[in-house]
Design a protein around this nucleic acid. Structure first.
Lengths: 241, 241
DNA sequence: CTTTCAATCTGGTATATACCAGATTCTAAA
DNA sequence: TTTAGAATCTGGTATATACCAGATTGAAAG
């Protein structure tokens, strides 16, 4: 590798790899050469090659699949957490395929932190739903949902592999009035990372949505753990005056 | 270091360091021991110690200052990009100090991508303002602002080290009606990273806000590049019905 | 007391090497 | 043809070492 340049070698390698991606030589989801191959091609150590790859991963250009290799990240989808239109149709509108899988659903005692956030008494029963969502068959987010059973008794009997809010609207006549949304980058904890088939500790984007109805009553708390490179949050807000 | 555990050594080290932070033994902005000290303490290589540190950095628990060392990340502030109340007062409400610094301000021909986003003709003149904002004297974000001169002629004559929207409201009677907001994690490009005194390629959070008035006329395009661990986006949305 | 500059401390980058464990592929047996 | 298991490929983790360059510190010179 050229050492005359002042730019560090691993960044030079990064640049060349990034070029191949941005120029379209390597397409979305395509596998990159193995680390050992890259280190040979560029006459660098595997450690240095890895540095370049990790850099590209941080930038969102590539992602890794546990012990299978490195792949080109597909385009980000837009995502509006303030709207409750179906995830699937929303994603499909953007030209991607989407799918939801329910991992678990049960009635539990509300976790303390949820009770605090939702403003309901400790120990209240709530529905807890875990879902995994795919975009183009790639698992992109894990969702943890807490619902107030008062408003939607028996909802666990339904299939939850489709739009939850469609169900809440049609079956239970529920409509969220106010949504409080929090967003920040965070690393994915082991269980979530496993469920998304990425390494523990890889960075993700955390979104929490708390919905109340007109009477200020708690409807839903939704926690989403996204791959950081899978989407772009898009919100439109019209003035309050 | 204990090798009986199945958890990788670098994560065990991570855990012990994280403990010291979360238990409050190490306070916000406190300097961690040097990498070489840590590797000696834990009987590991510096490379492995670094792995633990990089992990903690990704989690937002610590940050680095170029060749000065590693430090404990202070608490995230809340930030609502949909509101236009002054940054400084907003941050101070949360018990932190804040400060804004204008890096440059000029009248330029609108960059093509801005014209496209804003829906104004190519080549139109716009004001371009670069600012740097501090929280507790730590540079936390870089802001690039594009303003429509039609609406706020001569604004560059004013001091821009205070609330821009306060100025726009009081001096020019401007009020944003619709805001289109985009948020996603992204690595910081060299110039931004330098201005924030972090390494090029460190992860950040990108926020773009596009404001129009009631007539659909372009008011402002605001791009913000945040340290990923400095804040938490908080938005409240009331129903559209 | 202040300034200057060298010594030192710290992270940044890079090489060479090794072994492990999950994923994939290939091969030989059923 | 199918299947079980071995060989192989791939990333994951870890050691040992080295040199560079910016930041800080401390001592000597003014």
């Amino acid at each position: 590798m050229n050492t005359v340049e002042k730019r560090p070698v691993y960044l030079q390698v990064r640049d060349q790899l990034a070029d191949k991606i941005q120029s379209g030589i390597w397409l979305a989801n395509e596998k990159l050469p193995a680390e050992r191959q890259l280190s040979e091609q560029f006459s660098i150590t595997r450690v240095t090659a890895r540095q370049a790859l990790v850099q590209l991963e941080a930038e969102g250009l590539i992602f890794r699949s546990n012990r299978r290799g490195w792949f080109v990240t597909p385009q980000r989808i837009n995502y509006d957490p303030s709207r409750d239109i179906g995830f699937v149709s929303y994603v499909e509108e953007q030209g991607f395929s989407a799918r939801t899988e329910t991992l678990s659903k049960m009635l539990i005692e509300v976790p303390d932190w949820v009770a605090e956030q939702a403003g309901i008494p400790e120990g209240t029963p709530v529905y807890e739903i875990f879902r995994r969502r795919y975009i183009n068959e790639r698992p992109c987010l894990i969702e943890k949902i807490y619902l107030n059973p008062k408003n939607c008794p028996g909802i666990l009997q339904h299939s939850l592999d489709r739009s939850l809010w469609h169900l809440l609207r049609t079956e239970y006549k529920l409509d969220p009035y106010e949504r409080h949304i929090e967003i920040y980058p965070q690393t994915l904890e082991a269980r979530v990372a496993d469920a998304l088939a990425v390494n523990t500790g890889s960075t993700g984007l955390y979104i929490r949505r708390l919905c109340h109805d007109q009477n200020g009553e708690f409807l839903e708390l939704d926690e989403e753990f996204w791959l950081h490179n899978a989407m772009k949050v898009v919100v439109s807000v019209t003035s309050n005056g």
